[in-house]
Design a binder for these strands. Structure first.
Length: 254
DNA sequence: CCTGCCACTAGACCGGAAGC
DNA sequence: GCTTCCGGTCTAGTGGCAGG
C-alpha cells in the first residue's frame, strides 16, 4: 500500500510506535508478575481516585520546570561547563542536543531512550562517557558523514545518489532564489539545509506527507508551489510551532 | 499528603538508501 | 521515479513509585 496516502502514512507511523511501545509494556508486565512486592496497590488506587485531577495542573508546571533545569544541567556538563556545540561552538540553547558519539547502535542506555528520558537517564547515571553536545546542523552533518563510509558502491546506486543530489541543489536553489542557503540565518552548507513546510504539515497540498527525495521530486514536478522555504536544521527546529514560539526561529525572537 | 523523579504514550520534525 | 524503511532529534501530558 503506498504510504503517499496520508492515512496509510499515519497507520504506518502508528504501527512503528506500537511495536516500540509493546516491548516496554511486555517487560513491565513481566516485572510486575515477578516482583509484585514492588508495586504498592494502595498507592495506586489512591492516585487514580484522588490525586489525578486536582494536582495535574501543578504537576504539569513543576514537570516542565524540572525537565528544563535537567536539560540545561546535562547540556552544560557535556559541553565541558561552557554551554555550546562541540563542533561549531553554537551557544543558542534551543539549537543544542545530545549526540551519541559512537552512534545509537553502540549506546549504553536502553534502546528506547530519547528526549527527556535520555536527559534524566544521563543525570541519574552520573553523566557517563560517550555523549557530546552538538547543534542540530552539526548533528545532521555528522549523520551524513557517518553514512558516507558505508554507502553502496554499486554503479546504479552511485548514479542514483548523484541524480538526487543534483535534484536537491536544483530545488533548494529555486526556493533560495540563488545558491541554496537558509532563509533565516543565511548559512549555505548543503548538508545543513532542510526543506521547511512554512505552515506545518497539517495543511495538505499534496506534499505535506512527503519527505526527502520524494518531496523534492514533488516540488519540481508541481512547478515549485508556495508554502515552502529552505532552512538550516537549527532554524527549522527552532521555529517549530509546538515549542510555543508561534513558528518563529530563535534568531528572529532575539 | 505532597513532591521529586522517572517512565510511558503518542506523536512532531527532518533526512537518505535501496528495492521495485 | 516512487515507495518503503530506517536513521536521527525533540516535545507534552500523565501514570506510577518512593520518601519526606
Amino acid at each position: 500500500m503506498p504510504l503517499k496516502d496520508p492515512e496509510s502514512r499515519k497507520l504506518y507511523d502508528r504501527k512503528r510506535w506500537i511495536v516500540r511501545g509493546k516491548k516496554q509494556n511486555e517487560l513491565k508486565r513481566f516485572d510486575r508478575l515477578k516482583n509484585p512486592e514492588k508495586y504498592n496497590e494502595r498507592d495506586r488506587k489512591r492516585w487514580i481516585g484522588e490525586r489525578r485531577d486536582k494536582s495535574n495542573k501543578k504537576r504539569q508546571e513543576n514537570g516542565m520546570n524540572e525537565r528544563r533545569a535537567i536539560r540545561i544541567e546535562v547540556l552544560t556538563h557535556y559541553s565541558k561547563q561552557t554551554l555550546g556545540c562541540a563542533f561549531c561552538g553554537e551557544q543558542e540553547l534551543e539549537f543544542l542536543s545530545i549526540d551519541h558519539i559512537d552512534g545509537k547502535k553502540n549506546i549504553k542506555h536502553p534502546k528506547n531512550l530519547d528526549g527527556w528520558h535520555l536527559y534524566f537517564w544521563l543525570k541519574r547515571k552520573n553523566f557517563p562517557e560517550g555523549y557530546q553536545v552538538l547543534c542540530r546542523n552539526c548533528n545532521l552533518s555528522k549523520a551524513y558523514m557517518n553514512k558516507v563510509t558505508t554507502l553502496s558502491l554499486e554503479p546504479k546506486n552511485i548514479l542514483a545518489r548523484k541524480r538526487l543530489k543534483k535534484l536537491k541543489i536544483e530545488v533548494f536553489s529555486y526556493y533560495s532564489k540563488d545558491v541554496p542557503k537558509c532563509s533565516c540565518c543565511g548559512i549555505y552548507q548543503l548538508n545543513f539545509l532542510t526543506m521547511d513546510h512554512i505552515h506545518g504539515r497539517k495543511i495538505d497540498d499534496g506534499g505535506s506527507k512527503l519527505r526527502g527525495n520524494a518531496l523534492y521530486t514533488f516540488l519540481k514536478k508541481s512547478g515549485y508551489p508556495s508554502g515552502y522555504q529552505v532552512l538550516c536544521g537549527n532554524c527549522n527546529y527552532s521555529k517549530d510551532a509546538k515549542k510555543k514560539f508561534l513558528g518563529i526561529c530563535a534568531h528572529k525572537r532575539q
